[in-house]
């Protein structure tokens, strides 16, 4: 039990992922939604790093590295869009975005 194995990390990763998923689903504030998605990405990063470590492979770390780069870009663009949206509609409530109604 004292020995920390790959499974421990994977379970932790999925728990974090689930927390992120709950956030994505229950939040109505767009800013909070972005944060929840950051949590999702981090959960996956942990899993990547752990698998890479236990297999003695650097590929996992490489992937985590690129995921961080993507996350940074996503935040930059996403927040830019969010600001435009806020300027135009004066709200960041998810439920007001209904222009995609089918």
């Amino acid at each position: 039990m004292m020995e920390i194995g790959l499974t421990h990390y994977l379970v932790l990763s999925t728990v974090l992922f689930a927390i992120g998923l709950v956030g994505v689903m229950r939040r109505k504030n767009l800013l909070m939604l972005f944060m929840a998605s950051e949590i999702l990405l981090n959960a996956v990063n942990v899993a990547f790093a752990a698998i890479g470590h236990y297999y003695g492979d650097l590929t996992g770390q490489m992937f985590a590295f690129f995921v961080i780069a993507i996350a940074a870009s996503e935040v930059a663009v996403g927040l830019g869009l969010l600001i435009i949206w806020y300027k135009r509609t004066d709200t960041i409530d998810l439920d007001t975005m209904t222009s995609m109604r089918g």
């Binding site: 920390i4 990390y9 932790l12 790093a49 890479g52 470590h53 770390q61 985590a64």
Partner: peptide
């Protein structure tokens, strides 16, 4: 902290 634990210092 997990990354440090996993010897992924750079990450």
């Amino acid at each position: 902290a997990f990354f440090f634990l996993l010897n992924a210092d750079f990450l």
